[in-house]
Design a binder for these strands. Structure first.
Lengths: 150, 150
DNA sequence: GGTCTATACTTGCAAATTGCAAGTAAATAT
DNA sequence: ATATTTACTTGCAATTTGCAAGTATAGACC
């Protein structure tokens, strides 16, 4: 059982990744997977800075800076200097960006609901509980083992 | 609860993705994330063709062809024309490639065991069962909903 | 057998993505 | 007042990407 651990996670993660990829056509825009993740994080975090989102997504900040620029250019994201510290740029979604993010979210949840629709109520609860448990423990374990993140 | 579904999956998937990224230094090689996935799939599938692995990973076949070439060049993968059909190339890991794949696998499983070490036996079983359940249902649901895969 | 289509893979671009090094500009330390 | 740190941006140069167009083999049809 132990030896299949990675495999089952790998499979799930890949499938979920495909889902993310497939949900990039939204609100009349055809954005990239990376852009979709950025919109998601800007929406989720409370007025994040460029650096915050870059770190969340594990992207190099110079790369991220340019990705933000392109999202600003197509009108989905806006950058505002923080009043308290004008080196910092606060990111937010434009109305159109919010629309796209919501549309993607809707698609994702539709699919997930569809997946859950074949489960019993007990099974659904178990799955949700299990993922929560995993998330909590993975967060805790960040520094355990040999974290090569540096 | 329903509206957090995507979020908890997204978090888990991202963390697992980071883990995959962090496990790319192995056996004296510093390979890319994509290369790591390719080694994994070649190892897992039984003498797959180029096309099979490309499809599994959702990569364009021309891109994949080149990725295989680079893995052959650094001596981790070998390509053999299939005896039955010489258009097809069968992929396999070289001894060194197998070593790298095993090393990566070991690192991944070490981390996962570490995550699981903070759980009770019941919790562990629940998590494994939940992921299996998800995988089974996601596979089933491939064509349900509106699959925009085309 | 000979031609025609289909399949498996490869190569030629040209565009997009990446990250390091080096920059700017603002905040903080001394 | 100057030096250092921080947040972000730009200049490259390398890598990765995918479409279009190629080669080579296999199978279909006559």
């Amino acid at each position: 059982m132990e030896q299949n651990l990675r495999e089952i996670f790998q499979m799930f993660s890949r499938r979920f990744g495909f889902l993310n990829k497939d949900c990039c056509q939204a609100g009349g825009h055809n954005i990239s997977l990376v852009q979709s993740h950025i919109l998601y994080e800007i929406d989720r975090q409370h007025h994040p800075s460029i650096q915050q989102v870059a770190e969340t997504l594990g992207t190099d900040i110079t790369t991220f800076s340019r990705q933000v620029q392109s999202l600003v250019k197509i009108g989905l994201v806006s950058k505002t200097p923080a009043p308290s510290d004008r080196r910092i740029f606060i990111l937010s979604l434009t109305a159109e960006g919010k629309e796209v993010a919501d549309d993607i979210d809707k698609q994702m949840n539709q699919f997930l609901e569809c997946v859950f629709s074949n489960m019993s109520q007990d099974e659904r609860e178990m799955v949700v509980q299990a993922i929560h448990l995993l998330n909590r423990n993975m967060e805790k374990t960040n520094k355990c083992c040999t974290t090569p993140i540096g």
